[in-house]
C-alpha cells in the first residue's frame, strides 16, 4: 500500500523527515510521535502535498504528487481546524466531494451519508461557525470518508472530542477497518491508537524509530533502560546504594542535590529495594516519578537504541 524508499524532506536547512524506509501492506496503522516529530510531514508526503527532497514515495504503487487518479483513493482528515463560519457541514462536505468529479446529486447523497456516519445528521445544516470543536472534528472526518476512499489518513482526529465522542469515533474507525479498508492514524497519544489498531510506526526527530505490534513495542520498552526521578531533600544519600547495583545504568544528581535521576535496567529490582533504603536511613522522598507512561521517555529509550547507545 505505502512504500517509502530512503525518503528525506528538507525545509531549507531543517529536516522534516530523515531517510525513511517503509513497506506497508493494506491495513490499519498507528503513526505515533511527539509534536514536531515529522508526522505531518510524512502525511503530506503520502498525500502528495510535498515532494521528497531525496528518495521516492509510492502509495498504491504510484507517486502521489499531482496524481489525480490516486487522490480519488485517499481521504485526509488534517489536524487543522475548519474556518468557513457561514457554511454548513452539508454544503462543505458536498462541495469537497464534488471536487472528486461526482455529480451534484451524488455529492449531496455521499455527503449526507458520511455526516450520518459521524453522527452529524441532525446538525448538518447549521453554519459551521456555530459548531463546537467536537462537531467540527466530526465534519472533518465526514469529508475524509465521504468519497469512499481506500485509505484514510487521520491526523490527531480525537482533538476536541469528549469521551462519548471519542468512543463513537473509535467505533466508526473500527467499522471502517472491519470493512477491510485501510487507515493511517497519527497521534501523539499512544492509547488513542491502541483502541483502533495494534500496528504502530514510531517516529521521532523525523526518523522511524520502530514499527510493529503493541506487544512487540511493549516488550522492547520493558527491556530498554527506564528512567525514574526521585525528588526530596535527602535523595543524595541514595547515590551510594544505587551505584553498587548491577541493574543501575546511570545516576544523575541535580537541582541542588534534591533531584535524582536513575536509569534502570531492572525497574522491578529497584522498586523492591527502594523501601528498605528509605526506611533504613529515614530518607524523605517527596516525589517518585516513573517513565513507563511517558511517551517522550519511551522515545528517548528508542532513540538511544537507534543510536546504538544501549
Amino acid at each position: 500500500m505505502i512504500q517509502l524508499h530512503h525518503v528525506t524532506k528538507l525545509y531549507g536547512e531543517v529536516i522534516g523527515v530523515n531517510d525513511l524506509c517503509l513497506d506497508m501492506q493494506p491495513g490499519a496503522y498507528g503513526l505515533v510521535g511527539p509534536n514536531g516529530s515529522g508526522k505531518t510531514t510524512l502525511i503530506n508526503l503520502l498525500t502528495g502535498q510535498l515532494r521528497p527532497t531525496l528518495g521516492a514515495v509510492k502509495v498504491f504503487g504510484e507517486p502521489p504528487s499531482n496524481n489525480r487518479k490516486l487522490l480519488r483513493r485517499l481521504g485526509l482528515c488534517p489536524a487543522t481546524d475548519v474556518l468557513y463560519p457561514n457554511v454548513s457541514a452539508r454544503q462543505w462536505v458536498s462541495y469537497l466531494v464534488s471536487l472528486h468529479g461526482f455529480s451534484k446529486q451524488e455529492s449531496e447523497e455521499l455527503a449526507v451519508q458520511s455526516l450520518d456516519h459521524v453522527g452529524m445528521l441532525s446538525r448538518m445544516d447549521r453554519p459551521m461557525g456555530e459548531y463546537s470543536l467536537g462537531m467540527r472534528q466530526r465534519a472533518k472526518i465526514a469529508q475524509a470518508i465521504a468519497h469512499q476512499p481506500d485509505l484514510i489518513i487521520l491526523d490527531e482526529p480525537y482533538n476536541g472530542l469528549d469521551p462519548v465522542g471519542r468512543q463513537q469515533m473509535s467505533d466508526l474507525l473500527k467499522r471502517w477497518v472491519g470493512e477491510g479498508k485501510s487507515l493511517l492514524f497519527a497521534s501523539h497519544v499512544l492509547h488513542e491508537i491502541e483502541s483502533i489498531t495494534s500496528s504502530f510506526l514510531l517516529i521521532y526527530g523525523g526518523r522511524l524509530l520502530a514499527s510493529g505490534t503493541s506487544e512487540e513495542l511493549e516488550s522492547f520498552i520493558s527491556e530498554a533502560p527506564q528512567q525514574v526521578t526521585l525528588v526530596g531533600e535527602d535523595v543524595a544519600e541514595l547515590v551510594a546504594d544505587l551505584t553498587r547495583q548491577s541493574w543501575v545504568e546511570s545516576v544523575q544528581l541535580g537541582d541542588n542535590r534534591t533531584k535524582l535521576k536513575v536509569a534502570l535496567r531492572d525497574p522491578a529490582a529497584f522498586y523492591q529495594a527502594l523501601p528498605a533504603w528509605i526506611n533504613g536511613k529515614s530518607i524523605r522522598v517527596d516525589q517518585l516519578q516513573g517513565s513507563q507512561s511517558n511517551l517522550t521517555a519511551i522515545f528517548d529509550a528508542l532513540l538511544r537504541n537507534h543510536r546504538g547507545e544501549v
Binding site: T47, Q49, R68, K69, L71, R72, L74, G75, L76, P78, T80, D81, V82, L83, Y84, L96, L99, H100, G101, Q143
Partner: peptide
C-alpha cells in the same frame, strides 16, 4: 492562513479548477 488549503489540495480538481 485559514488552514483550509489542505482540504482542497487533496482533491483531484482541488488545485486548478478551484
Amino acid at each position: 492562513e485559514g488552514q483550509t488549503w489542505g482540504y482542497l489540495a487533496l482533491r483531484p480538481t482541488g488545485r486548478l479548477e478551484v
